[in-house]
Amino acid sequence: MSRRVLEQMDVADCLELLGGVSLGRVVYTEKALPAIRPVNHVLDDGAVIIRSHLGGALATAVGSGRGTVVAYEADAIDPIEHVGWSVVVTGVAHLVADSREVARYERLLRPWVEIAMDCVIRIEPRLVTGYRLVEAAEVGTG
Score class of each variant (00 low, 15 high):
I50G: 01
G63K: 01
D13S: 14
S86H: 09
L33F: 08
V88E: 02
G130Y: 01
V21P: 02
A74M: 00
R3P: 01
G84Q: 10
D78M: 13
G67P: 03
E135S: 10
E106R: 11
E114F: 01
L133N: 07
L15G: 02
L6G: 02
G142Y: 08
E7L: 03
Y28G: 06
E106T: 14
R100L: 15
G65K: 07
L127D: 09
V27H: 03
D13A: 15
V92H: 04
L33G: 01
H41E: 02
V96P: 00
I50E: 05
L95T: 04
L15W: 02
L6E: 07
S22W: 02
N40F: 04
E7F: 02
P34N: 11
V11S: 06
E101F: 09
R66N: 02
G140E: 01
Y28T: 04
A97I: 15
D98N: 15
A59L: 08
D78P: 09
L43I: 02
T68I: 12
G56Y: 10
I77H: 00
R3C: 12
L58I: 03
Y72L: 14
P34Y: 04
R51N: 12
A103I: 03
R132F: 08
I115F: 07
R3A: 15
E124H: 13
D78A: 14
E138T: 13
A57P: 12
L127H: 07
H53G: 10
R4C: 03
L108Q: 13
G65P: 10
A136P: 04
V83R: 09
P79C: 05
I49L: 10
E135G: 09
S86W: 08
G65E: 11
G19P: 05
P125D: 12
L108S: 11
H53N: 10
A74H: 01
G130S: 12
I123C: 07
E101L: 15
E124Y: 09
L18G: 02
G65W: 06
P111A: 06
